[in-house]
């Protein structure tokens, strides 16, 4: 639904955002795009979502997250050091946005 709303908003100003033309630029069938937009099909592959995000000017990570996916570059970062990033993400869970934007390295305090 989100993709459809976004595309139709763009279409109101620019006819190149018709279902057919967007599908063509994303290299998928118009019928398939229509079904994705209506939520009839399960979310498409990461590659298609990234292409749609680029065409519609949306954030690819947001679109991927809405589809319940995580981009492969982020997966790679996490898989490289899973324990560290799992700990970091859990710690950041409750942190407000402005604080998350400024992630810094802390001087470690120990037992003394």
């Amino acid at each position: 639904m989100y993709i459809r709303t976004s595309r139709e908003q763009l279409l109101s100003d620019d006819r190149s955002f018709s279902l057919r033309q967007v599908a063509q630029r994303a290299e998928i069938e118009p019928a398939y795009l229509s079904k994705i937009e209506r939520g009839v099909f399960a979310p498409p592959s990461e590659e298609v979502i990234v292409k749609l995000a680029e065409i519609l000017g949306e954030d690819k990570d947001v679109l991927l997250a809405m589809a319940g996916k995580l981009s492969s570059d982020l997966q790679h970062i996490i898989f490289k050091r899973p324990k560290l990033f799992a700990e970091l993400l859990r710690q950041l869970q409750e942190v407000p946005d402005h604080a998350v934007l400024r992630v810094v390295r802390e001087v470690k305090d120990g037992q003394w």
Binding site: V107, K108, D109, G110, Q111, W112
Partner: peptide
Amino acid sequence: VEDHADRLPSQWRKHGG
């Protein structure tokens, strides 16, 4: 401290800082 932990005494690693 942890950037050089492998070259420091264990007590120092425990203290951190």
